[in-house]
């Protein structure tokens, strides 16, 4: 599921708690990744500057590798935006750049497909970045199933929590 393509882990921690997660939170997030056996070079934090984010590599069951970008500016106080760092297309060849309930996508930014991975109503500050990562890996596998079967992602996910 997870490939070794990125370089080591934490670059720096956020200078201000206002701009992103606290250093303590980042340490705890890394602890979860380690506990779950995710290799250090699968994820990388970019916490300098006003728009902190992290990048993760995700490999699907078909051995395709995708890169995910998780924006951490208001994490964990709100659901972080997650993008697949390219514009995906659906079975019909249409760009997945808009809001879709059945495909669990939101309005794209940066020219990248944005995954709807969590509802605001069920969001809590306890949700780890690892959990988001696993949900997005699940979404990517469902996306590939969509390409092969034509079923919407919703058909497989039966609506995420």
């Amino acid at each position: 599921m997870i490939s070794r393509i990125l370089h080591p882990v934490v670059k720096t921690v956020a200078a201000s708690a206002v701009a992103g997660p606290s250093p303590e939170r980042i340490r705890s997030e890394i602890a979860v990744f380690k506990k779950k056996g995710v290799a250090d070079n699968v994820y990388k934090f970019f916490l300098d500057g006003p728009e902190p984010y992290m990048v993760l590599a995700a490999k699907t069951n078909s051995q395709k590798v995708y890169t995910l970008r998780v924006e951490l500016k208001n994490f964990p106080n709100e659901v972080p935006k997650v993008f697949v760092t390219r514009m995906l297309k659906n079975l019909n060849g249409c760009k997945m750049d808009g809001i879709s309930g059945s495909m669990h996508t939101l309005e794209s930014e940066h020219g990248w497909t944005r995954i709807c991975h969590y509802g605001n109503g069920s969001w809590s500050q306890n949700v780890s970045l690892y959990k988001i990562y696993v949900k997005c890996c699940l979404w990517l596998n469902m996306y590939e199933l969509h390409l092969s079967t034509g079923n919407d992602i919703d058909y497989y996910l039966n609506h995420q929590a």
Partner: peptide
Amino acid sequence: KIDNCAICGNGEEMDLDEGDEVEVMLNNLS
């Protein structure tokens, strides 16, 4: 009170939601 709460804990090792149930879904799919 949640032990090692992500907000009001001592910040040493936060008790986070690791998504075990989602992990099971992903493993089943695999």
